[in-house]
Computed example of a mutant assay.
Amino acid sequence: MAALARRLCHISFHVSTGQPLALDLQRFFGFRPLAAREADGWRQLALRSGDAVFLVNEGAGPGEPLYGLHPRHAVPSATNLCFDVANAGAAARALAARGCRVLVAPVSVQDAQGAATYAVVSSPAGNLSLTLLERAEYRGTFLPGFEAVPSAPGPGWVSHVDHLTLACTPGSSPSLSRWFHDCLGFCHLPLSPGEDPELGLEVAAESGRGGLRLTALQTPPGSILPTLVLAESLPGAARGQDQVEQFLARHRGPGLQHVGLYTPNIVEATEGVAGAGGQLLTTPEAYYQQPGKKRQILAAGREPSLLARQGILLDGDKGKFLLQVFTKSLFAEDTFFLELIQRQGATGFGQGNIRALWQSVQEKAARSQED
């Protein structure tokens, strides 16, 4: 293991001037401004909900924004994962020894609240870079160089980041899995009994044509890092009907497809997001008519008609259940989206729910082609 990441500090996005991501996160998803910085052509705004922090970098200054770099990607994108480490310089050197490019050499930033040191390195996951942040001695609201932004308390819909899903090119999951293991200490998390770490979990489409391969990775017990999920397409899908392939095409390559945000009350969170005008992905009506689905929902202590009305997916058995709902894309390019997730003892991601999401995206794509 080259660098031990202790926790996820924040997820960075790069958008052009006037793109409404920061406003949408506040209006629709209950995020609140945490800290801001404006300098060198950049407007950087950190937003928080619970322990989930998103840093929106808006503009295109001549230099690099603090704690990251401008990837000059063709479309708005989630571009960087920032991890707390014990020693940013040592972590950067260790990753460089494993072949990672050091995009920003270790640099220290200081203000009246203390100091932090960070470095930025490349990752093999498309335009996604990694910031290695050492900030044990910093006492401020966010990070040196940022000014705190007073704001009212949020609605509490989200408590933390549950997982991160990367859309990958076909056949790349094994090499990506090894990279995250060797460089950051992630290990295989089986999603089904006896799962081969090299093959992951295959979820075939109902039509029998195509599907998804998912490989989940987690850090050792005691870590507070979110689970990492690698998603790639299985061969055979009809052209234009595969959600991972659509992401790869519209995003112009691999990248962070979605962030799973944990909510302690998915019914309240879904009602809040929908009531605020947030757009949620429609769940197929047939999902709630599956044999045994009503019984399964009741066994979880939930009301079938309520979940159906809100489009909440539920999967699991033996007293362990998972509830999920997905948003539509936050960008006009129809790429990155969010997921709200609540766990009742379940640790995986629900094969039935994965298949239902697949079907709903396929139906949406088919309707778009008809229009």
Rank of each mutant, 00 (worst) to 15 (best):
G255V: 07
P124N: 07
A274H: 05
A269L: 10
R295E: 14
L55T: 02
I341E: 01
Q296A: 12
P304G: 11
L176W: 05
G156P: 01
R309G: 13
F321I: 08
R252V: 14
T282H: 11
G352D: 10
A92V: 10
A167F: 06
Q296P: 00
F29C: 11
W179N: 03
S129M: 04
E64L: 14
F146T: 11
R48C: 13
H251P: 02
G185F: 06
G145L: 12
A136T: 07
D162Y: 07
A88E: 10
C187K: 13
A5K: 01
L81W: 00
G319F: 04
V244I: 15
F29Y: 15
N80Q: 15
V361A: 08
L133I: 06
P220D: 11
P226Y: 05
G253A: 12
L307T: 08
A308I: 04
P221T: 10
L330T: 04
A148F: 04
G194K: 03
V325W: 01
K364I: 08
N127Y: 12
A346W: 05
Y262C: 14
V53N: 02
S12I: 06
A119V: 09
A90N: 02
R43Y: 05
I224G: 11
A36D: 09
V361F: 02
L66R: 13
V85A: 03
I266D: 06
G50I: 11
L340V: 04
L298Q: 15
V56Y: 10
A119H: 06
F13I: 03
S12A: 15
L184N: 01
V56W: 09
L214M: 08
L130P: 00
G316H: 04
Q241I: 05
L340P: 02
G30E: 08
S16W: 03
G185N: 09
L143R: 05
G50K: 07
H73D: 10
A86T: 09
L313V: 01
C183P: 04
V15H: 05
C168I: 05
L143K: 03
G63C: 09
D334M: 13
F321P: 01
L338H: 03
V203R: 06
Q289I: 10
I11R: 04
H10R: 00
E198I: 13
S12M: 12
Q310G: 05
L34K: 06
L133T: 02
L69P: 02
L234M: 14
G99Q: 13
E303G: 01
K294W: 11
A269K: 05
L103A: 10
R101F: 08
L133H: 06
C183D: 10
V161I: 14
Q362K: 14
P174C: 09
P144E: 12
A96F: 13
T283P: 04
H70L: 08
L323P: 01
L47Q: 14
G194V: 01
A35H: 05
A3N: 03
L45A: 04
A205N: 06
T117M: 08
R6P: 00
E147K: 15
A90L: 12
L103D: 07
A269I: 11
D317I: 07
P124Q: 11
A238C: 11
P264M: 11
P33M: 09
S108R: 15
S233H: 11
H258C: 11
V120K: 00
T327S: 15
P264S: 10
E58G: 02
V325G: 02
S151T: 15
D182G: 05
S173H: 12
S368G: 15
E147A: 15
F337Q: 00
P284V: 08
G211E: 01
N80S: 13
V273M: 12
L132A: 09
T131K: 02
